[in-house]
Design a protein around this nucleic acid. Structure first.
Lengths: 207, 207
DNA sequence: TTGTTTAAATTAAACGTTTGTTTAATATCT
DNA sequence: AGATATTAAACAAACGTTTAATTTAAACAA
């Protein structure tokens, strides 16, 4: 689909790691070449330029960011169960793709490079629309409250996760998480549960 | 206290704006000099280097990031009112200092530069400790639930705000906020209220 | 108020590196 | 043999920083 060969994907993965770690401007082609063990000319050879490498990376990853939510909507679950599954899938997906999310969010806010981030925006719009459907279903069943500011739920779900990631060293210390494994496990269990609980108590009619 | 003269502060303010906008690595000394209408040598003259300029900026701003929470704790308010005021003050403070927060969070996550961000961590620790006091007071009065994951409340409060800011263009579009003024007003009213409502329904025993 | 002296501020120019990119030659594969 | 891949070397441009000269400001004695 994307016509990237194995060598190109190697480069993309290294670039993704470094861009997320040190930023696009903080990463040089020589950094990438060294880490990927290739000649510096290969980046231009395969991608044309550093910017096009970034565009290629986004193109490469963007398809994987789409949540499988069509199925979720059709599943025979109670609205609250759907919400919980929605959050679980969402956090899981973001956690798997945190590097590209970090990059995209920085590019989005910096708008230094005039990139076409429409595909990313479209995904966010699609996810929001899925959330609308689930919640409106719950509202009809009078399980959910009527006055819910649905567009602000996403910032709470994603924002909680991202802020937790951004302040990783801080939370590792105060939560006594001593290894990366413990930290990742905490996200999968406690943090996800916290977010689910947060959204639930915000939208559900009774506890 | 910081011994920065007017000219130095001029430079710091320009640097803050550009660092937040385009990142530290994405901003050159020549960018700053041009915007501040000074000679490029002046940055080295006043601050020594580009990195020390960043350190100076953090030093310059860090004192203003401290919340005035000692007073809040002593005020004669109900626990829930204290929480609401806590959130309002917190968001207001961050909103006023969003540029330096953006810079600090990026530096914190990138750890490209081995900076001493202890002062920033200390502030966060202090704010968290204030939150503990308020909530424990409410728990004693049996107004708040017993099983609250207090350290995760901050990611929800700040994360919601920051994610809203990061995706500013997206939310301006879907919320039909056409000017920066409308956007800022929405933060002060609706977003702050949303966060207060979120935390309230998460920690309060009944609605 | 003078003129003189000393320190601080400002400038243009140059420094050596590093940057992204291109070239031209060589190697590898089909 | 011909296309593709890989390399070392070179390119101009931009980078952070330093230098040395000049201007401005402050201090001081007459």
């Amino acid at each position: 689909m994307n016509n990237f060969n194995d060598k190109q994907i190697d480069i993309l993965l290294v670039a993704e790691k470094l861009f997320a770690q040190k930023g696009f401007d903080g990463t040089s082609i020589r950094n990438i070449s060294k880490e990927a063990k290739i000649n510096i000319a290969m980046v231009s050879y395969y991608f044309g330029s550093k910017e096009k490498l970034l565009e290629g990376l986004i193109l490469f990853r963007i398809q994987d960011l789409k949540l499988k939510l069509e199925n979720l909507y059709k599943e025979k679950l109670k609205p609250l169960e759907k919400i919980n599954k929605f959050i679980e899938l969402y956090i899981e997906k973001i956690d798997q793709n945190k590097d590209i999310y970090q990059i995209l969010h920085f590019e989005l806010s910096s708008n230094k490079r005039a990139m076409n981030l429409k595909a990313f925006t479209d995904i966010k719009r699609g996810n929001l629309s899925s959330l609308y459907k689930i919640i409106e279903e719950g509202q009809i069943q009078k399980i959910f409250k009527k006055d819910i500011n649905i567009p602000l739920l996403t910032p709470t779900i994603l924002g909680t996760y991202f802020h937790f990631q951004t302040s990783k060293p801080f939370f590792m210390e105060i939560l006594n998480l001593n290894t990366d494994e413990q930290y990742n496990q905490y996200i999968k269990t406690d943090l996800t549960k916290h977010i689910q609980q947060t959204i639930k108590s915000l939208i559900a009619n009774e506890n």
